[in-house]
Design a binder for these strands. Structure first.
Lengths: 145, 145
DNA sequence: TTTGCTGCAAATAGTTTGCAGAGAC
DNA sequence: GTCTCTGCAAACTATTTGCAGCAAA
């Protein structure tokens, strides 16, 4: 769990470095991404902004999420059903555990992944640049119901 | 590498068991999926069918791929950019190595994955049902160019 | 003042669906 | 003969883009 404030500042800094303007809408999107525990979708971000920015358009959310992603400050999680969700806390590849019932996403700690990447590179002759690892199942909450 | 003929028969059998009709179009889709080394997209399957079935529609390919997927006989690989590709050889979850340049997909052998699933279950309290593991990089062919 | 950003609406791309006729069984 | 499947075209959904006005620096 990184500090939301720290993440927010770090993303803002990156934007400044690359000469992007800091509009209220943009800052609001960053704020949500920086403090998101739940890996929000664009739609979710949009919904959360309706109170403070009732006239803000979905296109603006998309544009800002894309921009921040292109700066490498968030991780995009695209799924087969077409839904995309974003992790603003850890912009580097890491495993996710996803509840197929309530769609909660959490980040487990896994040590053995680095070795696996090496193993794959050796076996396939690829130069491995990144990876994606998701586990799908039922969380304890949903199991109890 | 499973035997394409065997895979074909096994999918056909599953369809019969579930009272689905065996149309020429359907069998042609199955044939391509069963012998696919390259994890084809729907579009790719459609293209390959144009010679033998010039009037066949994309919708039919989609419907058949969906049907076979719903019977658990192919694995769907959806990507963040919206592209979907299908593995008709190994319909169970397994790792993939994907070249980001030529989009080739190959299946490496990785032993340590089962242990990892257990580790995740223990740490998160989830009941893990399936997973998805992709490595992205540059294949040796593309590196040479 | 100068760009880049926003909101709106229209365009786009991949996939799904309704319907009428064709064809598997 | 029955009922599913197919082809076509239209519908749908998530995302992107063009444009004119607005606002950050």
């Amino acid at each position: 769990m990184s500090d939301p404030k720290e993440r927010f500042d770090s993303i803002v800094k990156k934007l400044k470095e690359n000469d992007h303007k800091l509009t209220p809408q943009r800052l609001a999107v960053i704020k949500i991404l920086a403090q998101s525990e739940g890996h929000p979708s664009v739609e979710k971000i949009y919904d959360q902004l309706q109170d403070d920015f009732p006239t803000m358009s979905l296109a603006t959310v998309y544009r800002n999420v894309m921009l921040i992603k292109s700066l490498g400050e968030i991780l995009e999680l695209g799924f087969a059903d077409g839904s995309n969700r974003y992790d603003g806390n850890r912009p580097y590849p890491h495993p996710h555990v996803i509840c197929i019932q309530c769609h909660k996403i959490i980040d487990p700690d896994l040590s053995s992944l680095r070795d696996m990447t090496k193993e794959v590179a050796a076996e396939t002759g690829f130069e491995i640049l990144t990876h994606r690892l998701d586990f799908f199942g039922i969380c304890s909450n949903c199991m109890a119901e």
